[in-house]
Amino acid sequence: MSYDWRKTLVMPESTIEEAIKVIDSEALRIALVVDQGNRLLGTVTDGDIRRGLINQLPLSAKVSEIMNSSPKTTELGTPRPQVLKMMEERRLLSVPIVDDGLLVGLETLQDLIARPKFNNPVFLMAGGFGTRLRPLTDNCPKPLLRVGDKPILQTILESFVEVGFHQFYISTHFMPEMIENYFGDGAKWGVDIHYVYEQEPLGTGGALGLLPADLPDIPIIMMNGDILTKVDYVQLLNYHKELGALATMCVREYDHQVPYGVVEGDGHKITGMVEKPSYKFFVNAGVYVLNRSLVTTVAKNQKIDMPTLLEQRIEKGELIAQFPVHEYWLDIGKMNDFERAQKDFVEAFK
């Protein structure tokens, strides 16, 4: 169901009659009471209104007289499986989402229950040394470095959980125990997490050979564990299936401006000059969808990079598709990327 929680907002001085109109006009069956700064003050439901009328309050009375001033809320970023569990236990139809007291959304039971569930495995690559981020990675694997208020890999995991993925595999090598201790078996997020361990680095594609042989014969999503993105994973999966591709690589448009005038020539003759030209091309965005038939071609402990693996199939005439990513995307490879991620996080992921 499509809804806009912002249409449920009322001020504390609004009347009970105005709250009734809001509740009747929206499908959310609640009015959210906020102050001028959008700080949540309380909630009003049909039950609150009826209790007020029973106590002989007129419809012209302020909603502040009937609102629940201590409503149950959930903090922004709380895994949705936890929210669903809490709502079912307390028999709540909706719960306001707050960020340090400020109202930022409304979660509904209907939306949580209706969310589709995808059985496609998600394979997160978290074995790198993060050499270019030293000294931050001297005692911490890069995927556990915090951007905002949580590790990079947690933000990635939750972006998949939010849209219905629940089967995860994480490839580790550098300080694997720290990653496994943090994420455990995934119960905290209501998902299943399994681990594969690279005894020695196998390249960006070699860890595929460590996945269980009994994975379902459906596409898997593979993603580097140092990327922050808002790419639509469901749309990506559908795109891959519609094209009938063996593999789909997410690509990002990259602009490069030459800081000099470029001279074009033919032998000793200048044929043209272009002042500081700008070139656009696609670069690998580190997110892939792979058919099971491709995954099984990687032998156990085989060293291979993803570009090499895909190029081999291209040479055989098989379809390797590209999926342009126009959403937010950042590869946290260097220190300036990490610093940028800190600045971007609040706007992009809050």
Rank of each mutant, 00 (worst) to 15 (best):
N181K: 14
P121Q: 02
G77Y: 02
V63C: 11
K334H: 14
V147C: 09
L103H: 13
V274G: 06
F281K: 04
L109R: 13
A114V: 13
K7A: 03
Y239N: 04
G101Y: 05
Q56D: 15
R292C: 05
L124F: 02
V34S: 10
V191Y: 02
R6Y: 01
P219H: 05
Q342M: 04
E75A: 14
K142C: 07
S2P: 00
L208A: 00
G317Y: 02
R80P: 00
D266V: 09
K142Y: 10
M86L: 14
A245D: 04
V98Y: 12
L40H: 14
H268M: 11
A61I: 10
A126G: 02
F123L: 13
G37Y: 07
I218M: 08
M223F: 06
S60T: 11
T73E: 03
Y3P: 02
V10F: 10
F183L: 15
E275C: 06
D266W: 08
M273E: 11
P201F: 01
T308P: 00
D185I: 02
F129E: 15
G186M: 02
V122L: 08
Y254P: 00
I320F: 03
Q56T: 13
L228H: 10
Q342S: 03
G225W: 06
V161M: 10
V22M: 13
P259H: 04
G47T: 13
D255Y: 11
L93M: 13
I23T: 04
N55W: 01
R91W: 05
T137P: 08
V83A: 03
D192E: 14
D192I: 07
E242P: 01
L246T: 10
L157C: 01
P12Q: 09
Q342N: 12
G286V: 05
M67D: 04
N224C: 02
V63F: 12
G130W: 03
A247H: 09
S25E: 13
Y182P: 01
Y195C: 04
L208F: 11
A341E: 00
L103V: 10
L236A: 08
N38K: 12
H240T: 05
K85D: 07
I23Y: 02
E26V: 09
P12G: 10
L237A: 01
Y260S: 10
A285F: 10
M178T: 06
H256K: 15
I320V: 14
H268Q: 06
I49F: 03
G128V: 04
P121H: 00
G127V: 06
Q322M: 14
I152E: 08
Q302F: 00
P143L: 03
I16L: 03
I220H: 03
P96W: 13
G267S: 10
E88F: 05
L102E: 15
V163F: 12
R115M: 07
I304A: 10
V263D: 03
I304S: 11
G272W: 05
T296A: 08
Y195D: 06
V263I: 15
K150P: 05
S293D: 12
E13V: 12
Q257R: 15
Y169V: 12
E253T: 14
G164Y: 12
